[in-house]
Design a protein around this nucleic acid. Structure first.
Lengths: 255, 255
DNA sequence: GTGCCGGAGTTGGCTGTACAACTTGGTCCA
DNA sequence: TGGACCAAGTTGTACAGCCAACTCCGGCAC
């Protein structure tokens, strides 16, 4: 802290994010205790040398992460350390694996250009029959297969992916370096039986129920950049979500 | 609209929520088109007769719902209609079922007071061995069994639930009427094989892989009010989440 | 003891202002 | 033709202030 008045640029990071990060750290290390009370917004403003509005912006971040509650009339209550990950860790199997201290692996099984089927084109916002690339990959943790990843890319992006080495661990990271932006994603989580291909690659009996995550990712202009279907072996992964009356990004659908 | 200057109370609803609701409706009915651009914040402020700050508050709601993107330097882009539900619809099977036009049903199988096991007490923030109530219910859609709900309540709340009729459709709603507040929830989604009890009640073979949602719900003071484990028959439900670089409530964990 | 009431403390909501950072499209020049 | 550059438009960040709504606790009356 103590960067007061430097008008950004020092860290390139907004003041409210610095405050949020500092508070997050304080909460994670238990400085306020679980179930404890946070100082009043005004006190925090004084302490950090910012306005109350900036403190409120910082607290809104922690609120969305489920680290604190808030209610009119009384001080904020600490709920506990956040269990949420960054957007990047959620998007990229590779980053996620690294963040939990595992060794991620990836082997590209097939990359095929093809006319997209109606469903794929709809998900990618393309005209029916447009060219797409279908990529099938086997993902491993510490060399053990855990997931099958079937991703469909629009032609523009698939052409880039095609050039990646077959044993490239990450596709997301090189794409980002090439200027492809991922900013929003919709996830659907359910279960699905393993087909013959899944069974062969994952080493499980056909028909085994797999945890399935389907994901559509868009760039900041709303243009879809990938449509992916990931199938995890049972017991290898779980998804967690926090929501509250203040913010809800989760919903339940008919299967 | 046109409530300008009435200092709340008229609808009891905050101005920014009214603006958000109006914009949501406009987007849902396609007034701006998918991929279209929203008017500038300043224009919206003029149109609704509020300050730009209030408009930004409204837009933050839509941002979190995944309906619009936002980026410095250019107007907001419409992503599409939201698929998210209210917090209440997510918490309550009954409300969810009604919101999708199905007929919810519930039958209480057992309600037993018992000393909580260490895991249960930890989840509920109680001393090990504290008294809890375990409630087992079978939930149906249009009279077809779809889910087994095992909920653990702290004694104070369990005592209330105990008094509910055995065929009560909802437990959440009467609890709310009795003043129990639900404000924050952590969800974990994975799969789990049906045990003998699941199999008998759901009418599936033992060992069938079920979609499992575990949920811990707290009140505004951070005190846990329920710890629930719901097991859904395959194909009856899917969970969807939206997240973005701006807000992430989702994470992936080792299973 | 019990319950009502009021006041201090705190967060929610809203306004207004100012500037920074960024996108976009067009102009101008080489 | 192509590229650099500029200007207008737009969102992000931050500040300051005001009042409403609500919680909580302690004092007071009964």
């Amino acid at each position: 802290m103590e960067i007061r008045g430097v008008a950004m640029g020092v860290q390139g990071e907004a003041r409210y994010r610095q405050v949020a990060a500092d508070l997050r750290e304080a909460i994670t290390t238990g400085r306020y205790g679980s179930g404890g009370r946070l100082p009043a917004e005004g006190d925090l403003a004084l302490r950090y040398g910012v306005s109350r509005g900036t403190v409120r912006q910082a607290l809104a971040v922690l609120r969305a992460d489920g680290m604190v509650t808030s209610r009119r009339g009384t001080r904020r209550v600490v709920l506990g350390a956040a269990r949420t990950q960054s957007f990047a860790e959620l998007l990229s199997f590779t980053r996620w694996a690294r963040s939990i201290g595992e060794e991620p692996g990836g082997r590209t099984v097939t990359v095929e250009p093809a006319p997209g089927d109606p469903g794929e084109c709809a998900q990618l916002g393309l005209e029916p029959g447009s060219s797409v690339y279908r990529v099938l990959r086997l993902r491993t943790l510490s060399r053990v297969p855990v997931m099958i990843e079937r991703t469909v890319y629009p032609e523009r992006i698939g052409a880039l992916v095609r050039g990646f080495p077959i044993d490239a661990v990450s596709h997301t990271e090189p794409l980002e370096e090439l200027g492809v932006l991922f900013t929003d994603a919709d996830h659907t989580i359910d279960q699905w039986p393993a087909d013959a291909e899944d069974a062969r690659l994952l080493g499980c009996p056909p028909g085994t129920s797999l945890l399935r995550e389907r994901r559509r990712t868009t760039d900041p202009t709303g243009v879809p950049v990938e449509w992916s279907q990931d199938r995890y072996l049972p017991g290898t992964v779980a998804f967690t979500v926090h929501n509250s009356v203040a913010t809800t990004a989760l919903s339940r659908r008919r299967g």
